[in-house]
Design a protein around this nucleic acid. Sequence first.
DNA 1: AAAGATTATGTAATCGATTACATAATTAAT
DNA 2: ATTAATTATGTAATCGATTACATAATCTTT
Lengths: 334, 334
Amino acid sequence: MSSIKDVAKAANVSTATVSRVLAKHPHVRPALRERVLAAVAQLEYRPNLIARNLRSQQSKTLGLIVSDIRNPFFTAVSRAVEDTAYAHGYNLLLCNTDENPEKELLYLQLMGAEQVAGVIFSPTLQTLNRWHELHLSFPTVLIDRSLRSGDVDAVLLDNLSAGSLLAQHLLSQGYRRIGAIFGEASTTGRERQRGFEAALHDAGLSIQPEYVRFVRPQSEAGYHTTLELLGLPEPPQVIFTSNSLLTAGALQAIREQGLHIPAQIGLVGFDDTAWASLVQPAITVLAQPTDEIGRSATELLLQRVADPQRPTRKIILQGELIVRESSVEQRGRT
Amino acid sequence: MSSIKDVAKAANVSTATVSRVLAKHPHVRPALRERVLAAVAQLEYRPNLIARNLRSQQSKTLGLIVSDIRNPFFTAVSRAVEDTAYAHGYNLLLCNTDENPEKELLYLQLMGAEQVAGVIFSPTLQTLNRWHELHLSFPTVLIDRSLRSGDVDAVLLDNLSAGSLLAQHLLSQGYRRIGAIFGEASTTGRERQRGFEAALHDAGLSIQPEYVRFVRPQSEAGYHTTLELLGLPEPPQVIFTSNSLLTAGALQAIREQGLHIPAQIGLVGFDDTAWASLVQPAITVLAQPTDEIGRSATELLLQRVADPQRPTRKIILQGELIVRESSVEQRGRT
DNA sequence: AAAGATTATGTAATCGATTACATAATTAAT
DNA sequence: ATTAATTATGTAATCGATTACATAATCTTT
């Protein structure tokens, strides 16, 4: 691997001149410029970004730290972030934390070390709680989860409304015994649950604690918890899940029990994944605007990079209820 | 952000001593060690990895460059790579190229600049063709796709056998008119097609070119191509797809046409995604051992990092045919 | 107690770039 | 033709770490 020194030597100029040519500074004689460019080509020289960033204390790279890349929500958002970043001339480095606070700290550290211009991050509750001790050296935009206090940029779904909307739909369909499975790792699950309970409360229904579960937001947990709910003396008429991994697990459990959807049990979830409309019956979901989330988060971050003083903002987006066959009206049920 | 100098000043020692304490060198007096550690804690000092790597010319970070993070195959492999890397004390930086050779070069460059220890990469055909001009500064393990020549480490599916196995299954079920959709971006699609055609040939069937398509490996292409195939004067009895995005698109098209699987049309694909077993009828697939691919690739890479001289190896893994309802026997058909 | 071996610490070079500053070369202005 | 202004180039400091080397301090050994 050749360095700027090699190029300087080959072109018989100083390293400063090489640097200037490459940075397209105006004050370089054409003759020298030619020599430098020839040497660069001949040696196949590529500047070492790490050294460049070390010196100039900035880079054209953004970081995206997600909690679970297997979750279609995050892969969809990742693509939107990637595309938006690329359109603005930025690269994207993606990391997966597996909802593990230790990994979160590790990758946050790595991002700082790699001198990224900024980071988009979906943190666990634990990391969120000690956010202020972290003292990150780069601007951050939170997605999907956030602090109660307003001092960090974020792009979020209106989870309260979303949970409420989905619950209201179930109530309007005549469901009364609603089993609900929420993710425990983040604020998101809690908020969706609050919306869910508010809707039930508004309808004059009381909350039955044995129907409401908080679990690791993964399909295995969705599967096992659904089996538990179905095994209750008086099983729920419908299962409400708060992310698509849980939905998939729930669906698997329901299938294994040989129950028919929606005749014997209903199912609704979050995120309009590819398969939600392909399974039969198709699943009713609360779709998140993943493209919009990724794009907004990236733009928010780039604005913050450009102006660190700008007041923080939270962008709250609305979800869209997509009613399909998995939650049709339940006439004549109790 | 505090640097090693600040710590040295605060502890009233030299930067060398700070570095030694942090690197756990043996020859440091306990008293000094204490002072340094106290200063580190007090200043919340975290070493700048970028500077460390610049000097020591190595890092504990691996790169993974995939062609499409939306493809469940790659998310599954990513998780396996991430876990294996983490278990060996390495971080993982993930990049998405969107099957775009320009982005591939960009990220390869970025990886080099970020001084990763090595990279796992699923390249497009185009980048593969100019592989030898690239002169990468780090070891690489290819996954999913590879060069014909054997001079680069790789972990691959036995695509020829896999394509053949899946085709044989269809033939054994009595299917004769088989529509097939392959990805055009990589060697993988070509190899699966060769296996597919070999199976047909062995069974004494001729290849009908209008039934065989090469398209961008994305669900939209799967959708449109399936519609085209279904619209032929004599439509195929079954659709063979060479990745799960194509399968999803094909399924959507079939559903929209109101065709019943498997009574009116069969469908098979690659990769045992979460939804392949959840849709009804469940889809027959050729499952790739994604965990094994990710783990093997990572271990191969780490071995290569440890010993750059070691001869190159290709690890060829076998796929597993999982027969489900989407391709049941077609008695009495022509 | 003196010489030699060992241990502890600091100084300064280094990685590969950028860039402030100094200086040389050219051009413009009087 | 001088001087001033401008343009071009090089020298050296810098970013934040690691580490070779030099040297000071301590411990053994006889």
